[in-house]
Amino acid sequence: MSALAEQLRRLQAQAGRTLSPSPRPRAAAGEIDALRRLLGLRERAARPASHRAEVDRALPGEEIAPGLRLLEARAPWPALPEVVHLAASPAQPLARERLLAFDTETTGLAGGTGTRAFMIGAADWHDGALRLRQLYITCLGAEGAMLRAFADWLREDTALVSYNGRCYDAPLLATRYRLARLANPLAGLVHVDLLHAVRRRYRGLWPNCRLLTAERMLLDVLREDDLPGAEAPQAWLTYLRGGAATNLRRVADHNAQDLRSLAGLLAHLAHLEANG
């Protein structure tokens, strides 16, 4: 490490970014931390090389571009009328072939230009079944390819379906397309956000209107061994930094379930609306 980096580290340590209200024995704490770091390093260094080779890096799907993988699956399509009419959607009824449910997994919730999607999942009506397609990246450089691949799935008449996507996923992708200097393919598309429809019906009746609640109450979905959404960023980072893919695979499962639930909720709500 450079001398400047060394000096910076020292300055930061001195500046004591974590302040406590009373004097504390900082020297000791600092030394212990330094010792811990050293010990940690020694532990890792002492590990036999073969041990590292055993790290489970197996990834599902196929690599369709360097660092970009695609997972594809089919699921039974929930009973969906040919034309969907939802109060939440713009006035016109939507042919089911136009619908594309999507959901992203991101590096966090902080917002702004520093948060990115590492996985984009989409579900649509295809050949009489629900087609699940998930794009995800294994290096940062593949983000552009992922964004282009997702753009290819969208047509001018595509109607997006999401859960809180109007406020979260869509603006986040808009930012990513902008940063990649690509046109935003989501701009101007019809977008049905099921969260709004669920809120209208169930606010105050349920403890909350999260997707997990909605799918449990309306679809009897039971998730087992589900990776909580909040752990998704760490799962991906672990893989990115050379760690195991175990949890990243669970993220993919989680995302796929989100997509199936989206489709299920859409069908359920359409049914409710059709029957008053």
């Binding site: 230009t113 520093g114 948060t115 940062l140 450089g141 980072l237």
Partner: peptide, 13 residues
């Protein structure tokens, strides 16, 4: 990664 330094943390500095 490559010749780029990308933001990766979940925070808003």
């Amino acid at each position: 990664e490559g010749d780029r330094w990308e933001w990766i943390a979940d925070s808003y500095p």
